[in-house]
């Protein structure tokens, strides 16, 4: 089984850390994830840049709207995420717009630049949530 671990914290406080503190935390975290990575169990890792750099694409009745700032509703829940390489913010918005066309369920996409990224590799393919029948077919 694959699990996503989503990190929540008080941004003000994390941003008040000195560089030395930040580096120390990152190093301790690397110690933890390094172990799992060696076992081939760690997928992509990302640390996001501040919410002040975020925009949010809100699906509406008509055209989806781009708004400034992070996703702020509490009525909706985080259901998934994508990581995409884009030259311009506009390209990321375009991609998110295509997603809204493919998925009409109401909701939002928050678009936030990534500050730290590690590709990671999960070596056991069967970890992915697929039906046993599909797995056999793939093999």
């Amino acid at each position: 089984m694959l699990y996503a671990i989503l990190c929540y914290s008080n941004e003000d406080e994390v941003m008040a850390w000195s560089k030395a503190e930040d580096d120390a935390v990152m190093e301790r975290l690397q110690g933890v994830i390094g172990r799992v990575a060696q076992q081939g169990r760690l997928g992509p890792t990302a640390r996001l840049l501040p919410t002040t750099s975020a925009t949010t694409l809100r699906k509406g009745k008509s055209e989806p709207l781009v708004m400034d700032g992070p996703f702020a509703e509490t009525k909706e829940q985080l259901l998934g995420f994508y990581i995409i390489d884009c030259e311009k913010l506009e390209d990321a918005h375009d991609f998110a717009r295509e997603l809204t066309e493919a998925n009409h369920a109401p909701g939002s996409y928050e678009i936030r630049p990534v500050g730290f990224f590690q590709q990671g590799v999960v070596t056991d393919g069967s970890a992915v949530a697929t039906l046993p029948a599909q797995r056999t077919a793939a093999e």
């Binding site: 840049l49 750099s53 913010l89 500050g115």
Partner: peptide, 16 residues
């Protein structure tokens, strides 16, 4: 690179 990424995103965001 981190500051640049954040800065570029903000410029694009502002010019919208």
């Amino acid at each position: 690179p981190k500051m640049i990424t954040e800065g570029l995103a903000l410029v694009d965001k502002a010019f919208r």
